[in-house]
Nucleic acid binder design. Sequence first.
DNA 1: TCCTAGCAGTTGACGTGTCAATGATGCTAA
DNA 2: TTAGCATCATTGACACGTCAACTGCTAGGA
Lengths: 162, 162
Amino acid sequence: MTEATPGRRAGRQLPTGDELRIWRDFIETTAALSSRLESRLQRDSSLSTGDYAVLLALSEAQDQAMRSSELAAHIGWERSRLSHHLGRMERRGLIRRQECATVPRGAEVLLTAAGTEAFTGATVPHLRAIRELFVDALTPEQVVAAGEIATALRTHLDAAGG
Amino acid sequence: MTEATPGRRAGRQLPTGDELRIWRDFIETTAALSSRLESRLQRDSSLSTGDYAVLLALSEAQDQAMRSSELAAHIGWERSRLSHHLGRMERRGLIRRQECATVPRGAEVLLTAAGTEAFTGATVPHLRAIRELFVDALTPEQVVAAGEIATALRTHLDAAGG
DNA sequence: TCCTAGCAGTTGACGTGTCAATGATGCTAA
DNA sequence: TTAGCATCATTGACACGTCAACTGCTAGGA
């Protein structure tokens, strides 16, 4: 199924029908994949992927602790988003916040025992789910191609929008 | 960068380091891409991609109207999600709801003039953004590969958890 | 007749994300 | 010294999504 007037391709501004179909498949499927991973993590560990990202970063930090903005930078979140999320995680006992001894007006985020335990229990099922839902769905060549596509998209995105 | 013990590959349950890196690149980049598209649509048309999906479906329906559950099935949303979203769109004057004449206890969703206008104005910039951010970022071969990857992931997803 | 099934749609609670505004604090330059 | 100014973090308002409960209605069987 190719376009009727191939000569137009060079100058056109809008995607062709084929490109649009691929776009929709691609973006909807990756969203469905994320969402499935999210459900699995929730089911297996009562954690969201956001929780997991925070716990992963903290568990790799020395003293299981990080400054709030360091943490935000590390996982690529806005500070406001992190602050809301930490509030919810604190209510569930996964982390604690206290004033930072070294930096004035800096908040330190600490992993609690419950947080460590939740993270430990979540890791293997989560990695297994990534393997089952992503790696196992693709041929090794497709996995490589997916990596190259991601790199190309990311590069273009970074170049385009600032 | 390949794994140190390739012999393990066959029986392993967890992704290798390379696979995990690709997974993260892939899922984070596609999320960033969605989010960039969303911003562009918002900036150009004051619509979200959810609004756009609803308006697209309605504008293609005869009489610019659809039953609520038809609409939900057509765009693949849960009824509850659609109901919340229609409430917000109705407040903004993009659609109207009225009781369905033919089906008892059925609500009909109607496109308003403002909704039509918003959709009309949104289409070209939105398609242009898809071209710029997705199609132009990839080689034609990569576009095809992306389609194949999406198909493989979707097939696996449907087989696995459905 | 009545009661139970089930469907269509809505609602409320809550998690999640963005944006803009707000404290609180330190730094710097008039 | 002090009036800005940037930085760290939080907060409030709101959009969006899911889940479970609920309303109203219809239909089918005891």
